[in-house]
Design a binder for these strands. Sequence first.
DNA 1: GAATGTGAAACCGTTCACAGCC
DNA 2: GGCTGTGAACGGTTTCACATTC
Lengths: 256, 256
Amino acid sequence: MPPLANGQGALSPRAIPEAAVARLAVYLRVLSGMKEQGITTVSSEELSVAAGVNSAKLRKDLSYIGTYGTRGVGYEVEVLIDQIERVLGLTREQSVAVVGIGNLGHALANYGGFPGRGFPVTALFDVDPDLMGVPVGGIPVHHIDDISSVCAAKEITIGVIATPPAAAQVVCDRLVQAGVECILNFAPVVLQVPETVEVRKVDLAVELQILSFHQARRADSAPSGETAPQPRGNGRVTGSPRHSVENRPNGAVVRR
Amino acid sequence: MPPLANGQGALSPRAIPEAAVARLAVYLRVLSGMKEQGITTVSSEELSVAAGVNSAKLRKDLSYIGTYGTRGVGYEVEVLIDQIERVLGLTREQSVAVVGIGNLGHALANYGGFPGRGFPVTALFDVDPDLMGVPVGGIPVHHIDDISSVCAAKEITIGVIATPPAAAQVVCDRLVQAGVECILNFAPVVLQVPETVEVRKVDLAVELQILSFHQARRADSAPSGETAPQPRGNGRVTGSPRHSVENRPNGAVVRR
DNA sequence: GAATGTGAAACCGTTCACAGCC
DNA sequence: GGCTGTGAACGGTTTCACATTC
């Protein structure tokens, strides 16, 4: 890195790669589970297996947030939890609004605080007059036209779009106008937003199509019988001969 | 490993990067919309803007599946749709089973064929005796113990896990045992699977925490007033001066 | 001895920029 | 002249391997 190039100004103290942030959230969940089980210390090896990554990656990820381990020993579960929570900004509660109270919106509203808490759903919006005022999961539904005032009153920081695709961009615009700068989009639409707004999307159809792609690949690389080929012995040797568990690109772990 | 390293044997004819596959699914949706509007031809520039990527990336992605464009002209919408569908394996229908008929499972069951069709939900499973036989979204609910027989009968290729976290691994094991090799996991758990099985996960909590991270970063780089800083003029110039629209890492587009 | 933290290397995906074709 | 297709440059992410610390 000769001439430094951070993209976000020179001396940004916390330049954590996006990919690492996503994994930190996973580590946090695993660590919470460990804490509940009364585990007080973990090694990078143990934690990495539980989180479905390899230990080198785990250590690199943790190194982005500071050095909280003890060489020869491992990490204190509680310390890691605190530090990850700090970095992810989970010390301040973020209020969530859900827009679009169909099947999915219902499901989201009923999550009730969301897994791991810290994300209370405090406002619901729809256009259907029949829903107005009716509480869903204990929260009354407001009309979309009131987004601005309600979001301001409830200090909403995260907006979740669970509307039909046709409405998504309009809803997004209104959320942005209401000052919401973080949006989670379930509608199958590419949203247009100003620079200041962060959008994440969850796209069912895309996920299914990716699975379909892999299924299709499988199908034509094994053009013979019916039942799964089930690699005998230990199959192709893919690299790291040290672990009994192998990492996958998207979140799972291979069990032998 | 200096000489060739494909991981999947040397002469694998279709080695499409995972990231490109995900985007192809998005292009497909955008193209379908265009076809409905009667558009017959697109340039890489037009399509890329609509899909929220830049045109070089789009062209590279399309080049993975073949060369179907005409220099100086663009692509035929219908041709691209057909080719992407072929590559994603959408020519064969994939039957989907949803396990866990809570709020989310209900929502999924009611999608009814899923956006863009090609993914009919044909089986539902739960453990709750009250739900057995009751049709949800027109599909009867079976007991989890019957996964094997029902999945075989309905030729399920994709399993969706929408159970509470504690049940997810068991359900996953049963699906795998039933021969399902593609799994979409909504439970906040790292699943352990054999090598032959492909898992994708959708993790609400992780998505929210990533948003929270960005919110936190925003908060401490602008430690002053209350209202959004709203960059005057056209804000910082971030690079590509050619487009009026700028690409974001995760699926949205910057509107100026 | 055991396990962390981290430079350096390898890898992969994105962007550039232009040759080739219509 | 316009737009595709792609080799080459780039930048980010993952992995390796080892010095460092307890």
